[in-house]
């Protein structure tokens, strides 16, 4: 059965300001607790080299549906009231926001637990691929995720 919980998902091909996204999200104001995660691009790559940028590839259609599916599952499992996801695609530069996950609930426990679980689900089960671009121009695909 489809979830009636409001799930707001968007892929962003341009830089976005996460706090502005939250300001415009009505559930942030209307529920007692909101769990928030903001992930930004590191300036150093997985081999400690300085990065110029990162290219974020996705699977158009499947990625959006998978984010909706993961958010609906997490929301239902944790009994929360609303979920917001923003995820960058395309070329990203250091310190730009890569991902914003916000979960609104009536208590801090469900909000925080759902936010963490959903972020991990996105990292492992949403089809995105990061390619690091070093300042020397080398490109390298990243397989897997940084430790929790």
């Amino acid at each position: 059965m489809a979830s009636s919980i409001p799930i707001d998902v968007a892929l962003c091909s341009n830089a976005f300001e996460p706090l502005a996204e939250l300001q415009q999200w009505p559930h942030h104001q209307s529920n007692a607790a909101t769990g928030i995660f903001i992930g930004r691009m590191r300036s150093q790559g997985s081999s400690a080299e300085e990065l110029e940028a990162m290219q974020l590839e996705h699977y158009p259609g499947m990625t959006e549906r998978q984010l909706q599916h993961l958010a609906s599952d997490a929301a239902a499992s944790h009994g929360v009231r609303a979920v917001l996801i923003r995820h960058r695609i395309g070329r990203v530069t250091p310190n730009q926001t890569l991902v914003l996950v916000a979960v609104s609930a009536d208590r801090r426990g469900p909000a925080q637990r759902c936010c963490q679980a959903l972020l991990e689900a996105i990292k492992h089960d949403a089809p995105f691929w990061k390619q690091e671009i070093s300042r020397s121009g080398d490109r390298r695909w990243i397989e897997g995720n940084t430790p929790l």
Binding site: G39, Y59, M62, H87, L98, V99, L119, I122, K123, H124, D125, A126, P127, F128, W129, K130, W141, I142, E143, G144, N145
Partner: peptide
């Protein structure tokens, strides 16, 4: 049919 190399989102 799609083959998806290891995912690295978030």
């Amino acid at each position: 049919l799609a083959f998806l190399p290891p995912i690295s989102g978030g």
